[in-house]
Simulated scan of single mutants.
Amino acid sequence: MSKLEQIIVIEPPYDLKFKGPFTDVVTTNLKLKNPSDRKVCFKVKTTAPRRYCVRPNSGMIESGATVTVSVMLQPFDYDPNEKSKHKFMVQTIFAPSTATDMDAVWKDATPDDFMDSKLRCVFELPTDNDKMDDVDATKAAPVLNSNADGTSAPKPISTSVDDSEMKKLMDECKRLQYDVGKLSDENRQLKDEGLRMRKAHRSDNIVSSSGATMSKQHSSSSLPSLLVVIAAIFIGFFLGKFVL
């Protein structure tokens, strides 16, 4: 018995393209459409399961419905000279209309019931045109004043906030300059007061020294006078004794 032809429509049908740079997670969508009148179960498999994250990696597609599968390539060191050998396979089977347990559907299926589609992975680096488009989009973004749904976009923050902050800084600088000037004046007054006190203390020392000198002179001058008086008394005493 020949193998069944794939019933679902896969987009893209052959290549899964991942556009770098690959320093971050790169996501590519895979659309699965069921054009038949029966339910279809699917599984997405890869030859490099550690390099990719697939959500959802399995499920059931109702008749006429479409499922979008996100394939996320993990960051890695890209070598342009190395060709990608990674492949994906989308495997499907018809499911009974009353089926609710997919595990049971896959378990009961035979190899002849499987329908397979293979896709290869293609890695691409961004071109110069892509870079220019990103730059143009970045420049145009601030110009927009409304969103696609008609709501107002957030307005850029006014520079008045910066002006007010600058004014506060200027006022603070002026206040600090005033405080510095005031402290300088107080320091100058303290220095002048200290000079006056030192001069006054020096004058007091000079006056004290002068008074002490005069006292000594007076004492020294009065001492001979006292000796003369005492000598006169003794002389008068002796003279009176001998005369009598």
Results as ranks from 00 to 15, higher is better:
Asn57Lys: 10
Ser220Tyr: 04
Asp179Arg: 09
Lys216Cys: 01
Gln6Glu: 02
Gln177Val: 04
Thr46Gly: 09
Ser222Pro: 01
Ser184Gly: 06
Met197Gly: 00
Ala109Met: 04
Phe234Cys: 06
Asp204Tyr: 05
Met170Phe: 09
Gly194Thr: 01
Gly194Ile: 01
Thr100Gln: 11
Glu82Ile: 13
Ser209Leu: 05
Ser146Leu: 03
Phe22Tyr: 05
Ala140Trp: 11
Ser117Lys: 08
Asn81Lys: 15
Val90Trp: 10
Leu244Tyr: 10
Leu125Asn: 05
Ser184Thr: 11
Leu169Met: 07
Leu227Thr: 10
Arg50Ser: 12
Glu165Gly: 03
Leu223Cys: 05
Asp24Tyr: 14
Asp79Pro: 00
Leu239Met: 11
Pro96Phe: 03
Gly194His: 03
Phe22Ile: 04
Phe237His: 07
Leu226Met: 13
Ala109Ser: 15
Met166Tyr: 11
Tyr14Cys: 04
Val122His: 10
Tyr14Lys: 13
Thr92Gln: 04
Phe76Leu: 02
Asn145Gly: 09
Ser146Phe: 13
Asp77Gln: 13
Ile7Gln: 15
Val180Asp: 09
Asp128Arg: 15
Gly240Gln: 05
Tyr52Met: 00
Ser36Leu: 02
Pro111Met: 05
Ser160Pro: 00
Val243Gln: 07
Thr110His: 14
Ser220Glu: 14
Leu32Thr: 00
Lys199Asp: 15
Ala48Cys: 09
Ser209Cys: 07
Ser210His: 03
Phe94Asn: 09
Asn57Asp: 11
Lys3Gly: 08
Asn29Trp: 07
His218Gly: 06
Ser210Ile: 06
Ser225Lys: 12
Asp37His: 15
Met89Arg: 14
Val9Ser: 12
Glu124Trp: 01
Phe238Val: 06
Lys3Gln: 14
Asp130Ile: 02
Val180Glu: 11
Ser63Thr: 03
Phe94Gln: 08
Pro224Tyr: 05
Ile206Trp: 08
Ser219Glu: 10
Val143Ser: 11
Val229Arg: 06
Asn81Ile: 02
Asp37Phe: 14
Met115His: 02
Ser203Tyr: 04
Leu125Gly: 03
Leu183Lys: 11
Ser222Tyr: 10
Arg38Ser: 09
Leu183Ile: 01
Thr28Met: 05
Ala212Thr: 08
Gly236Glu: 08
Ser160Lys: 14
Arg188Met: 09
Val122Leu: 06
Thr66Asn: 02
Thr98Asn: 14
Met214His: 09
Lys216His: 04
Ser215Gly: 00
Ala104Thr: 08
Asn129Met: 08
Ile61Pro: 03
Leu227Gly: 10
Ala137Thr: 08
